[in-house]
Design a protein around this nucleic acid. Sequence first.
DNA 1: TTGAAAGCGCTAACAG
DNA 2: CTGTTAGCGCTTTCAA
Lengths: 344, 344
Amino acid sequence: MANIREVAKEAGVSVATVSRVLNHPEFVSPATKEQVLAIMKELDFSPNNLARGLALNKTYTIALLIPNIMNPLYPEIAKGVEDVAHKHGYNLLLCNTEQDRKKEKDYLSLLMNRKVDGCIVTSSLLSPDEIREIQKETVPIVVIGRCQNNPGFHCVFTDYIKGGFTATSYLIELGYARIAHIGGPEFLYESRDKTEGYRKALIENGLPLDDTLIVEADNEIESGYLAVKKLLRLSPRPEAIFASSDLVAIGALDALKTEGVKVPEEIALVGFDNIKMAAFVEPKLTTVAIPVHRMGLTAARLLFDAMEGGDTTRGRPFQEIDLKPKLIVRKSCGHEDRIREIFS
Amino acid sequence: MANIREVAKEAGVSVATVSRVLNHPEFVSPATKEQVLAIMKELDFSPNNLARGLALNKTYTIALLIPNIMNPLYPEIAKGVEDVAHKHGYNLLLCNTEQDRKKEKDYLSLLMNRKVDGCIVTSSLLSPDEIREIQKETVPIVVIGRCQNNPGFHCVFTDYIKGGFTATSYLIELGYARIAHIGGPEFLYESRDKTEGYRKALIENGLPLDDTLIVEADNEIESGYLAVKKLLRLSPRPEAIFASSDLVAIGALDALKTEGVKVPEEIALVGFDNIKMAAFVEPKLTTVAIPVHRMGLTAARLLFDAMEGGDTTRGRPFQEIDLKPKLIVRKSCGHEDRIREIFS
DNA sequence: TTGAAAGCGCTAACAG
DNA sequence: CTGTTAGCGCTTTCAA
């Protein structure tokens, strides 16, 4: 609770000197330096970062906006961001927007007013213009999401269309034709993209598009459960399901089991995200992996580059980093046996 | 980027008036208020919270220290805390200590210097004295963890001894005698307590204590996997396993399957925590539920009480809130059938 | 190598 | 109801 003035007085020097031993110790004589350091310890002094930030216009804090902390995807991103933030001596302010536009806006302006030094926004619900409006010129923002959506921001991008395409194509290769899709919430571009990939794969393979095979769910286990209940009422039943997230797939799997439908024998299932749990349900879930941890790392690196380089606002080339989704084949789709069976 | 002074000038009033429309609008005439508000909008003014915090000695931010953001337990606590923080108009600063004493200390002092208004610490590695040493007198801290361990802090507590006891007793009731235990990391009191509960249950039931039946693991799926590999080398094999966390139990289950051991027919399994995934592995995991979300809520409420009541440091009665663990019976231990079989 | 002093942007007496 | 003014704790010219 002691402040710099008390330390100065006690040490018989000026506050400037005390400040110097904190910030530019090389410019102060060893003798006084030691003296001051001693007094600091004695008085249990530690600088007030608020005041420091006010004077320096720097807070050594960055923020990360995530839509849902309960979705295991985001803690993993957060971990990636934190790893590099901590390495740079920065603090991470984690904000949970709960997929609420208002909350996202609130947090964002709060952060800008709190003068964080930088900010990473994941799967934002806001338009680039909305973000820009809230953004202070001095605070770089990097976006994790779709870049074409966010001109003017550094951006880490994953091609969900391709992801959806990959998942669906895989199912098609395995010989399934009547493939259902449990889509994510419409208001997320990620969901729409996955669905688009799904459609694209069907079309390119000359399979009919059937909208009754598409149901929407939010990103929750329970929601996947319900979706399957709906899908099972269809006749004929789908032969395979592409779920827009592993969480949903896990719920779907649960429903399938409840209904006594064997996976993959009767219905095959692909998830999306490759969350850890995907490998521990039964059957282990085939899924499309998103390099989440790396997304966090990369976004953070981009941010620090921008923060150190300054100049983010000037029409400088914005970086887009494209992290590729990758199919992880496990047991939930049928595999070699199934392939053989189909093609023989 | 405009500041209060510019607004004042532009509006032809004093800074005090501008400040007033921000903080005590009731004391300013409607006319000037509107006028000022208009200018604010025109200049895109928003107050600098750093300066505000400096002047008010208040930041409208609380912090939450968690040991591991990747463990699904903690996001749930965070959610609880955030719910009430947001309701009070506060920001939540989430800090991941990675179960590292140094990092925990660093974060804690960082936070104190940043002048958060309050702080919640979960399963701390620090002693009460260490925490107190870092704590600024004005900043209330509430602890989620063992209260006897933390005299002098408000505290939300769960009785892990009882939890371990409950889990083990349940296994014993079902007729298992040779019960193994996969303990959590020794350096966490939670782990030690669960293990103590395990021992207590054995003793009270007149079962022999056999230390070869106890193996240590950290709180990771992989670690549970390895632990089971070890346990399976024992002969005779254990009939049941009490795992110190669901994560570990899930890893254990995976290993058991890999080894072709049927659960619960050949080996029964109980987990701990009741994370969501416990209900989606096969067999669904019997476990001991910790009311995590409620822990977060409660801790936050305690914190806000303390913050508003002031006076936390004075030897005022510290609240201890005891949230009870609860057995959740699912399929991984054998159930009615098994009971009948055993008792007939 | 050091000190005096002018801010950083805001709030809160106090006096009108 | 409004303005003047003195800080909040720290950093950084500028002079010495």
